[in-house]
Write a protein that binds this DNA or RNA. Structure first.
Lengths: 347, 347
DNA sequence: CTGAAAGCGCTTACAG
DNA sequence: CTGAAAGCGCTTACAG
C-alpha cells in the first residue's frame, strides 16, 4: 500500500504552495483558475483525502458536534426499548447538525465509567449535547470549560455545572397538564391515574402537570403516582398489571412516557379490558411506534426537529460568545389526540 | 473565559515533562506513582481536556469509526419511515464500536452532493462503514486509499472500488427463500406474490430467493415482481392497494421489506381483508415495529448486533493489514415466524 | 492573488 | 522510569 499523500505531495504535484492547496480545498478564497484546476487534478490523481486531525488542529475547528446518550442495555444484552426515544433524538440531532454542515459524533455513555469515551467525544467536537445520566457533573464542568455544552432534557445538575451548561427542555409539565385536562374535559373521566417512570425529573414534571390539571378542576389530587414503571414497555406492563391484579379499575391512565403507555395497553388487553372503551390511556414523547399500534396512542409529542435545531443554534451562539450566561430554554410539546384516549382515529 | 489549558500547562503544574503527562493520561505506561498523582491533580485543577485533534495527529489514530447512511427525507421534510431500518444499523454499529472503544461519527449522505461531509467523516475516523447510495464510487475508492472501508448491505460497486472495499451483506436470497417456503410448506399457500421495493440489489436478491422457493416446489414462477413499492410503508400500501383495486386476490404476499409489509397490512385492512385469514403477509429486516403491530409480522430478521460486530472487526483486520484482499462476507438471517403468515402468536 | 514559515497540541522514538 | 525534541499534516497571519 502506497503511503498516504499529504498536502505537500499535492502542492508539489500542482506546482503551487501548500497555502494555495489549502485555499482551493476550503473553497472560499480567490485563487487563479489555472492553479485551482491544477490542484484539483493533483488531488484526483493522488487520491488525496485531507487529514481531519491536522485540519482540526490547525483550524481549531472540527466541523463535528457530539452527542452523549445513556447506555441502555436490556436484559439479554439487547437494547431496551427505551432506546426508541433516543433514536428520535439521534435522528433529530443528526439532521440539524448536517443542515449546518456538521457531522455528528455519538456515543452511549454511562455516568459510572466511560470517562475515556466521553473524553474521546469531547476532545473531537466543536460543541456537544449531553442527555441526562451520561456525564458526571465534575466531568461536565471540565468539558464545558473547553467547548459549549447543552444538556438536553436533563435535570439541572450541580450549581457549578449549571453556570456553564445550557439547558434545553420540553414542556413536560404543560404537556401532561393538557393531556390530563383533555381526559377530564372532553371525555368526562374523573377517575384518572398516573403511571410514573423511574425516579427522574421528566417523570416528576409530568406528574406535576397531571396533579395541576386535576387540582384546577376541583378533582381529588393524588399525592404520589399510582404506579411506577421504568420508561420501558416491560416496566409499564408490569406496573399496570399489578394495579389490575390489586383489583383497581381506573377509568384512565396518564402514563409517564409512550413505552409505559404501550406496556399499559398490553396489560389491559391481558386483563380483558378494552382501550379506550373500558380504560383510556395516554403517553408522552411521540415516538413513531405510538402511531402504529392499535389503538393509536394519544400523546404529547416532542418537537424533535426543533429540539435538534435549537440545540445546534445554542451551541453555535456559545461558540461565538463563550461568555454567555447559562440559559434554560423550554420548547413546547404538541398534544396529538389519537385513539387511545377515546377520540376516534383521525385517519 | 480563561484560555484552554494544554499539556504544557499540565506538565508545568505537575512538575513533570509533557511526555510523562501523556503517559499518565494514556494509562498504559509505568510511571512513578508520585508523578501520576501530581498529573491527575494538575489535570483536575486546570480542568484539562486533551485536544482530540492534536492527539489524533500525533498518534495517527482517532478512536472513531465512521458511518454514512443515506439521507432519507420524506415529503414534508419529515423522516421517511425507511429510516427505521437505519436506526437499527446506527444502534448496532454504535454498540459494536463502543465495545471496542470507539465512538461513532455519523452523517447522512447523498451521492449527488455532500462530498464535503463525507470528507469530514472520512478524514476524522480510523475506518468507516458506508451503506449503499451514500458515497460515489470514485470518492469511495479514494477514501479506501486512506482508511479501511466496509460497504454494508450494498451492491458491489465499480470494479475499482470492489478491489479495495470490503462488503458485508446478509443472506437476502436465502431469507426470502425460507420465508416463501414456509408459506407454501407449512400453510399450503400456492398463490404467493412478491411485492418488491425500489430497484435495488437487496430487493432483487430477495425476489430471487422467492422465485427459487417456488421453483423448487414445482410451482409457477413469476418472472417479475407482482408489484413494487419503495421500501416505505406508504409505498407498500400504494402498491398493494393498486393490486387489490385491479381485482387481484393473492393468498399470500412476500414483501421486500418490513415497511412494505406494514403498508400491505394497511391496504388489506382498507379493502376489508383479514390478515392472515384472507391474505398472509411476510416482511424482511426485523425492525422493532414489526413485533408491535397486530398481526405481528413474520419476517427474516437481520442480526444487527453481529452485523455491527463483524463490520468493526473487518475494519480492525484491515487496519492491522492494509494489504488484505477485498472480502465479501454474508451473514445469515433468522426467520421469525409470528402472526401475519398464519402461525399463531408465540406470546 | 501567492508563498514561506510558524504554529496548532499532542505522542513517541531516542537517549539516558 | 523520565525528558528533550522532533514530527504528525494541516491553516493562516504576514509579507509581498
Amino acid at each position: 500500500m502506497r503511503t498516504v499523500p499529504t498536502v505537500y505531495e499535492v502542492a508539489r504535484h500542482a506546482r503551487v504552495s501548500t497555502a494555495t492547496v489549502s485555499r482551493v480545498l476550503s473553497g472560499n478564497d480567490r485563487v487563479r483558475p489555472e492553479y485551482r484546476e491544477r490542484v484539483f487534478a493533483a488531488v484526483a490523481e493522488l487520491g488525496y483525502v485531507p487529514s481531519g486531525a491536522a485540519r482540526d488542529l490547525a483550524a481549531r475547528r472540527a466541523g463535528v458536534l457530539g452527542l452523549c446518550f445513556p447506555d441502555l442495555v436490556g436484559d439479554q444484552d439487547t437494547d431496551s426499548d427505551a432506546m426508541f426515544w433516543y433514536d428520535e433524538i439521534i435522528r433529530g440531532m443528526e439532521r440539524a447538525a448536517r443542515r449546518r454542515g456538521y457531522a455528528l459524533l455519538i456515543a452511549a455513555c454511562h455516568e459510572t465509567d466511560d470517562v475515556d469515551l466521553v473524553t474521546t467525544v469531547a476532545g473531537r467536537c466543536d460543541g456537544m449535547v449531553v442527555l441526562a445520566r451520561t456525564v458526571p457533573a465534575p466531568e461536565l464542568e471540565r468539558i464545558a470549560g473547553r467547548i459549549p455544552v447543552t444538556m438536553l432534557a436533563g435535570p439541572r445538575t450541580s450549581d457549578e455545572a449549571a453556570r456553564v451548561v445550557d439547558h434545553l427542555v420540553v414542556a413536560n409539565r404543560e404537556g401532561a397538564r393538557e393531556l390530563t385536562g383533555h381526559l377530564v374535559d372532553v371525555h368526562g373521566y374523573t377517575d384518572v391515574w398516573f403511571v410514573a417512570g423511574p425516579d427522574s425529573p421528566d417523570s416528576a414534571a409530568r406528574f406535576d402537570g397531571f396533579q395541576a390539571a386535576l387540582a384546577e378542576r376541583g378533582l381529588p389530587v393524588a399525592q404520589r403516582p399510582h404506579a411506577a414503571g421504568d420508561f420501558t414497555t416491560a416496566g409499564g406492563r408490569r406496573a399496570v398489571a399489578q394495579l389490575l391484579a390489586d383489583g383497581h379499575r381506573p377509568r384512565a391512565l396518564v402514563c409517564a412516557n409512550d413505552q409505559t403507555a404501550l406496556g399499559a395497553l398490553t396489560a389491559l388487553a391481558g386483563a380483558g379490558l378494552r382501550v379506550p372503551q373500558d380504560v383510556a390511556v395516554t403517553g408522552f414523547d411521540g415516538i413513531q411506534l405510538g402511531q402504529h399500534v392499535r389503538p393509536a396512542l394519544t400523546t404529547a409529542t416532542q418537537p424533535m426537529r426543533q429540539l435538534g435545531e435549537k440545540a445546534v443554534s445554542m451551541l453555535e451562539e456559545r461558540l461565538a460568545d463563550p461568555t454567555l450566561a447559562a440559559r434554560l430554554v423550554e420548547m413546547p410539546v404538541r398534544v396529538d389526540v389519537r385513539e387511545s384516549c377515546g377520540c376516534t382515529s383521525e385517519i
